[in-house]
Design a protein around this nucleic acid. Structure first.
Length: 470
RNA sequence: GGUGCCGUACCCAAGUGGUAAGGGACAGGUUUGCAAAACCUCCAUGCACCGGUUCGAAUCCGGUCGGCACCUCCA
């Protein structure tokens, strides 16, 4: 399987060649655990999961590392603003560590529900403060830092390639166009590595350091932890597209300034999920989480299926109508798979025709993760009556190894029996009797009554199933 | 003000020079007393608009209009 990926650094699709022959080292920016993940966040993790599964399907051993940001960071990249962890902790009346634990659990609960493979290493920022301090010391020794107003800053003017990822034009950037510039900074684009004198109110999350008691800047954790677990140069770094201009730009500066080596080979960024009003965010509009979707009757897999319908580098438009479409489409798929399962067991060796569908599918996924095309191939396979059920199922399972829709997992019969009132059951009985007597006029009357009461009747040979209308 | 992305049917969405994938909805049909399910069929001579290049353009170039994102913590 050939694999090519769009590299933000070169702005082109490049053939993928890892630094080590059969091993891929991948770092994904993880959640900041001061709140639930919203479905926009989750879209990015779905894309990263597709990337990982594609790499594995291509035969690579993957080491997947993700950070969990449990250090409080300010609502502002400068020295102002409120600490988000503290803010959340106050609102919930829990201490910051409890907040972090609660939202970390919630995060993995959601990603598990979406069948997203867990990273091999999920590292907490609070457990790597020493690594961050060591990295800052390294930068300090090389003259990339300065102390001002009690904080340690990275001086971007000491790093000639600053902004290469985002293609920032430093002359023309209007820093401070929308916010006030931190007056401690020599260059408005400088960023803090360590804070000691912020007016933080968080007395819990502070650590001792050579520069005084305080806490790390928000970019340093990713550099420190990724290099700790993946080495000073590794293959893939991914995250949301919003990270390009600031977070990843700063990570590159501090990482490469410290080591003097190229840091990351491929930068892969996922586009945003948006709705009619713009991006889905934590501070704007309705806060859409996976739980909200589930409360509205959607299965987490419906959301995964929905995400797979668009390309990861395109904005995807969320609407309830689209979710309905995704649910219908996925139910249709599951139904067909169930029918195949009843006919045959999945073949372990595929016939040539089935294999050619799998190859076509792999070609699409290998071509910068074109999941929508892959899905189209899956539907054509399903429709191809020249392929025997066992081969069809075997091919489907291979495709699903990447799609992760859980097609091979045993059917969980979700339709749990909600208690049907005995009045309704009595009406159903009466209707059955009318049916047997071929009194269809009466039977239809009874159907109307029962349906009006909020129950759906489905006739099967000899009996009738009752279920509550959603 | 700067930068980037985008505009494809009723909805979502692929498609980067060779004559519009796929899903959903809708409609028609087969079948079942009815209903549901299932199955079959149908669904863009056209890809925001206007010019240009080309044998050929949704795809390339120029312009216009519209949307989104980033330059602020953000997936």
């Amino acid at each position: 399987m050939n694999l090519s990926l769009y590299n933000t650094m070169s702005r082109t699709v490049e053939a993928f060649e890892p630094l080590e022959r059969r091993h891929v080292r991948m770092y994904c920016c993880g959640p900041t655990v001061y709140n639930f993940a919203h479905i926009g966040n989750l879209k990015t993790y779905v894309f990263e999961d597709i990337l990982r599964r594609t790499l594995e399907a291509a035969g690579y051993r993957v080491t997947h590392v993700m950070n969990v940001t449990d250090v409080g960071h300010l609502t502002d990249d400068g020295d102002e603003g409120e600490d988000k962890m503290v803010k959340s902790s106050k609102e919930k009346g829990l201490d910051v560590h409890e907040i972090a634990r609660m939202y970390t659990d919630a995060f993995f609960h959601d990603t598990d529900a979406l069948n997203i493979l867990r990273p091999h290493v999920a590292c907490r920022a609070t457990e790597h403060i020493e690594d961050m301090i060591a990295l800052i010391k390294r930068l300090e020794a090389k003259g990339h830092t300065y102390v001002a107003g009690g904080n340690v800053y990275f001086s971007i003017d000491t790093f000639p390639d600053y902004g290469k990822l985002a293609k920032l034009n430093l002359e023309e950037l209007k820093s401070g166009a929308r916010i006030d510039v931190d007056e401690n900074k020599r260059n408005p684009k400088d960023f803090a590595l360590w804070f000691t004198k912020s007016k933080f109110e968080n007395q819990v999350m502070v650590w001792d350091s050579p520069w005084g008691v305080g806490y790390p800047g928000w970019h340093i954790e990713c550099s420190a932890m990724s290099m700790k677990y993946l080495g000073e140069s590794f293959d893939i770094h991914c995250g949301g597209i919003d990270h390009i201009p600031v977070h990843h730009t700063n990570e590159i500066a501090q990482s490469e300034a410290a080591t003097g080596k190229p840091w990351v080979k491929y930068w892969v960024h996922g586009e945003f999920l948006i709705n009619e009003t713009g991006k889905i965010s934590k501070s704007k509009g309705e806060f859409l989480t996976l739980s909200v979707l589930q409360e509205k009757g959607f299965d987490p897999m419906d959301f995964r299926f929905f995400c797979l319908g668009g390309h990861y580098r395109s904005q995807l438009v969320f609407s309830w109508e689209s979710m309905d479409a995704a649910r219908n489409g996925r139910r249709n798929l599951v139904r067909q798979v169930r029918a195949l399962k009843e006919q045959a067991a999945a073949s372990s060796v595929l016939c040539a025709e089935a294999q050619s569908y799998v190859d076509e599918f792999s070609g699409h996924l290998g071509n910068d993760l074109n999941a929508p095309r892959g899905l189209a191939t899956l539907w054509s396979l399903l429709k191809d009556n020249s392929i025997k059920p066992g081969d069809k199922l075997g091919a489907l399972y291979r495709m699903d190894g990447i799609l992760g829709l859980g097609l091979d997992s045993p059917e969980q019969e979700k339709e749990e029996e909600t208690a049907i009132p005995h009045q309704i059951l009595a009406l159903v009985e009466e209707r059955l009797k009318a049916k047997r007597e071929k009194n269809y006029h009466r039977a239809d009357e009874l159907r109307a009554i029962v349906e009006k009461a909020g129950y759906k009747l489905t006739d099967t040979p000899g009996t009738t199933q009752v279920s509550k209308t959603l």
